[in-house]
Design a protein around this nucleic acid. Structure first.
Lengths: 224, 224
DNA sequence: GGTATATCGATAAAAGAATATCGATATACC
DNA sequence: GGTATATCGATATTCTTTTATCGATATACC
């Protein structure tokens, strides 16, 4: 149980958490690293290493106690203390995020949404009110909001980002397909769909290429 | 110009591409690696290394020719040949993706959407028809679709995944917050929001913690 | 035309992650 | 109670990615 969790491990933790919750539902009590690895398409050594950084261990011959592991991961991820957030851009994507019930599990609470389009102002989505964007700064400062979620088109993303920074937000979750600039001390995490797509289509190209080879010369190797 | 692009580089390429397109709009012709790095919050060495794997280079004292670089990156990312895809789950998120015009830039073409909810069947979003999900297999096979995009709730994601595999899809882009199992030769890329959120909230916690320290003992170090 | 310099690219070093090895140990089973 | 074994965890190795160093060169400027 170390205090320093690597970024890669950190990003796998929610995966473990999700899986363990499912397991718990099916009344399982213990689980081994290799069983977890098997289910999640990882290898046991990696699972053990990841878990070593958040829990103080499993037992030989038994594995980990699911219940305890869930607690350990939740603590490591900070899901026990809730963060309030605002969302800007109540289009389809914005509404999708507003409607998603799962965020509370992750300690994220969207308190309100903002937009410029008069057509959606005062609409309520999943109990959350959509406000005129000029009320953003005031609300953020009053409620001491630290997280802003950007779901506006690329063209307006930078100006929204600037507004958020001015409003005292220090962490920004950006869904607009553009790079944002902000002061050094502001954390920006962009949900980079183009990057995902790049990975996906690269594999696809390789796969189709290797399948063609399979057909022509009978080579049966797998491209990974 | 190598043929082997690392995964990390691959994921940064769309970022460069986007930036270079912007630059081109503003009539710029050349650009240096350090200028790119500066704008995108990277370092020049990394930019040069990334670009070295797709282009055959810039010139001393001048930098790269923007126009050529754009072409090179597009080729590397395979944006010149279009991939057809289907989308399953026409909720808010699904509609957001259907409406997004940018995918064609990335060589992705969503040909149709599918859902089970009678309320949305036959609706047209951004020119794309929403069909009953039982028509999925037939359409995929007929049109030789290789990519499936999953935007259904977590509970149904696995069964949709299975259907896609049966229909001959080999690459799956999963937006449902759950881990999917599929045969080895199927490429699954999950858009992992929980992982992003984990990174974000970790930084946030560290930041708030370090700010408190700043206030109490005057320590002014930056946490990155 | 010659020289200074911005900028690149090749090679090397360092850091970070993933994987492998192997000994330790708690439980199950005889 | 003793022994075999499943499973973990510490340490070592390999692989990937990032960062550093430094020499090469094309252009700009004199």
């Amino acid at each position: 149980m170390s205090t320093n969790i690597s970024t890669q491990t950190l990003q796998r933790l929610p995966l473990y958490l999700n899986f363990l919750k499912e397991k718990k539902k099916s009344k399982a009590v213990n689980i081994s690293s290799s069983a977890i690895a098997e289910e999640l398409g990882l290898v046991d050594i990696q699972v053990r290493k990841d878990l070593a950084s958040v829990s103080n261990g499993g037992k030989p011959k038994v594995g980990y106690i699911i219940e305890n592991l869930i607690i350990d991961i939740k603590i490591a991820l900070g899901y026990d203390n809730t963060n309030d957030a605002v969302l800007i851009g109540a289009g389809n994507l914005g509404k999708a995020l507003l409607s998603y019930e799962g965020f509370s599990e992750y300690g994220l609470n969207i308190v309100a949404a903002f937009d410029t389009n008069a057509g959606v102002i005062n609409e309520i989505v999943n109990g959350k009110l959509i406000l005129q964007v000029d009320k953003l700064k005031n609300l953020c400062q009053r409620m001491k909001i630290h997280i802003g979620i950007i779901t506006v088109p690329a063209e307006c993303a930078q100006s929204v980002c600037n507004m958020l920074v001015e409003s005292g937000v220090v962490a920004i979750w950006n869904f607009a397909p553009t790079h944002l600039k902000a002061p050094e001390n502001i954390m920006i995490k962009s949900e980079n769909m183009a990057a995902s797509l790049a990975v996906l289509s690269k594999h696809l190209t390789e796969k189709i290429f290797s399948d063609q080879e399979d057909n022509t010369d009978g080579n049966n190797d797998e491209t990974r």
